[in-house]
Structures are given as C-alpha cells and as structure tokens.
Design a protein around this nucleic acid. Structure first.
Lengths: 196, 196
DNA sequence: AAGCCTACCTAACGTTTGTTAGGAGGTCAA
DNA sequence: TTGACCTCCTAACAAACGTTAGGTAGGCTT
C-alpha cells in the first residue's frame, strides 16, 4: 500500500509534535520534513489544527480498539485482562510513538469541542482499566486499594513510555509490557493480610 | 516575607506553562496575569527563556534537596527509603504544581547547554531511585526485576500527578504518596517464588 | 490536441511573537 | 529641591506564524 501525501503529513507531524510539542512546531517545519513548501501543505489539509485532530483521532481509535478487544474476554481473570490491556497499550504506544504521544500530551491545543471529545474518549479508556481493577477486587484476586489512584499510576507509567522508549533500546515492546504487567499485577495481588 | 515581582512572575509563568505549555504561552500572557504590560516584564527578566530557566532551576533544587535528605538515611531499609523518596517527590510536585510540571515537561524548550544541565540533574535524580531499588534487591527485600524499568514506571507514575492533582481533590498529597508507596513497595516485595 | 484536475510553488497578507528603546512618575537620599 | 534609581507604560521593530490566492507544470481522459 502506497502512503498518500496526507498520511505522510500526519506521520511527519506526529513525530515533530512529539519532539517539539504542537505549539513549537510550525507548518513550515512539517512541510519541510515532508519534502514540500510550507503553503503547499494546504493542498492536503485544512489547517494546522486539522492535522492535530487527525492524529489524535487515529490514536483514539487504536487505543479504543485495543482495549475493546481485551474487554470482551470476560472469561479471563481480572489479572489476565489487566495484563492484556497493559500489553495492548504498550503495543499501541510503541507502534507509533508520534501518534500516541500526541494523543496523550498535545490534545489540549485542540479547539474546545474537539478537546472535549478527546477528553471523553480518554475517560472512557481509563474507565476500562479501572473496571478491571474493581472487578479483580470484587472477585478477591486484587487487594482493596484505591482503584482510581492505582488506575492513574498504571496509566501514567504506561504513558511515560512515549518519552523514553527507543526502537533500538535494550527492551522490546513485548518485554516492557510483560515487565510492567508483572509489576502492577503483583502490586495488586492480595497479600495474606488482605484475605478476600 | 513579601513576594518580589520577580517571584510573582516565576510563579505566574509556572502556572501558565503548566496549563498551556511554554511555547503556547506568550510573554504578554505572563505579564497580564502578573498585572503589568507585556514589555514591562523586561524590567525584571532578561528573556522568556530566563523565566523558564529560573523555574526549572528552582524545581531541580527542590527535587535534589528532597532526595538528598532521604538518601542519607542509610540506616533505613530499602523499602523505607523508597517510601520516603516517593513521599518527598509527591510533596515537591504537589507543593508547587507549576514549577514541578515545568521541570518535568517543559525543559526541552531550553537552549542546548541549559537543556543538557537539566538532563544531567534529572538523570542524577533518577539514579537515586534506581540505587535504592538495586540496594533492596541486593539485600534481598526486593524482587530481582529490571531495576531500570521499575524506576521508569515509578517516576512516570509520580510525574503524572502533575497532570491530574487538584488541591481540592479527594486525596491529600500525603494520602496519594502513601498509596503510591504501598503500591510500588508491594510490587517490589519478594514473593515466595523469589527467595533471596 | 485540448481540457481538466491535482499538486505543487511563490508571493503576500494580517496577526502574533519576543524584544528594544524612550519616556514618565514615584520614591529615596543627600 | 535635586538627582538617581526603579518600575512601569507606550510605541515600535524584525521575525515568525498560519493561511490565502494566483499561477504553473504534469498527468490523465476524451
């Protein structure tokens, strides 16, 4: 499949926004790295914000799809579901660092209604994690800790990967995901002092 | 103690940089919220970057001091040291969200040499956490997990507090710190399958 | 060959940005 | 009272910004 110019622009912009932030990236920067002049970008996009929106939407869909695929497996234990959700999240983040990073950090530059839509999507996504933790607490596998705070800790840790992950680094996405899953699941496992 | 205009500017700028990002905050924004006109800011600061640098330096010092105070307690177990470091970190973050957030997220807008200095300070700070984890692994209290990855997870989770903490929220800084400390220390505790 | 469409270039525009320079008013010390 | 200093205001500057408009070249279809 041949990448269209629009797809290239989105990809280039995603990387630049990750490197510099949305506000510190100009349309001339994006165009230059795409191999065209600044104003030529407008043959493909309506506005700078449209590029941001396109990237954010793409990421939102990927995170949503990834989480949905796991959520439907109610036959699994909460621990296994959490593991799979962590694995899915890490996969989405590391598969396109620019896109994920923009979704996680640059959405605030969107105009009001779009920003509200993104926040809603992020809340929905976060609630899926929280639900799994609460399910685990109800079924007794997980300790009765503050589910909201734990959810935040997990997601912030997962989202931080955007900042330091390098494809040529020591750990592969799968290894990172497995380590993180082990860490947080172990953190949540009931101890003898917390009987169900 | 009366706040000087410079201190006010740093404080205001810290909050604005946290809300909007450095690049999307203009000197006119900072001045306006400080109660003066844009160009008047230059009676107090040399440049916009100088404001950023001032904030980043202040935060760097606070994080460093907080961690140093704990590191010196080699009489404590690794778990207790980690607990105290987490508590100290949360205290610094929540005590001045703007300053902490800028140190954690906006430093990349500094010029090259200053940016390098900040990165070095951040690395030093991160290494303190890692050292405690490795000490715990050596003494047997902590599981033999990837210390680097665990350090990243912990710090990313702690740094994420900048984004969602509200002084009028449900949890006080102390509660958050205690929950997070319990979570990560429990995550690191050896299990029966990991004998020392 | 002619016409249409797409994808680009170039020039330009109005706005915003970080910053400089000159001036005025208020305060303080001699 | 005078002079120096500080803190602000205002005007202005050069550069950068996101974007629009007009034009050209190439490819495709009839």
């Amino acid at each position: 499949m041949v990448e269209t110019r629009r797809q290239q622009i989105d990809s280039v912009a995603g990387a630049l926004f990750r490197e510099r932030g949305y506000a510190a990236t100009s349309v001339r920067d994006i165009a230059q790295r795409s191999g065209i002049q600044g104003a030529s970008l407008y043959a493909h996009v309506a506005s700078k914000e449209d590029v941001l929106w396109s990237i954010v939407q793409g990421a939102a869909r990927r995170f949503h799809d990834a989480a949905s695929a796991v959520s439907e497996h109610t036959d699994l234990t909460a621990a296994d579901r959490l593991r799979r959700m962590i694995q899915a999240h890490v996969a989405v983040v590391t598969d396109d660092l620019g896109q994920a990073s923009v979704f996680l950090h640059e959405w605030r530059h969107l105009s009001d209604s779009r920003r509200a839509a993104v926040l809603a999507a992020r809340d929905t996504y976060e609630r899926r994690f929280r639900q799994v933790i609460e399910d685990g607490q109800r079924s007794g596998g997980f300790a009765t800790v503050e589910a909201g705070l734990v959810t935040r800790a997990i997601l912030d840790a997962l989202n931080g990967i955007c900042g330091w992950y390098r494809p040529d680094g020591r750990s592969s996405p799968t290894q990172i995901a497995d380590h993180y899953a082990e860490l947080f699941i172990h953190a949540l496992k009931s101890t003898p002092e917390d009987p169900p």
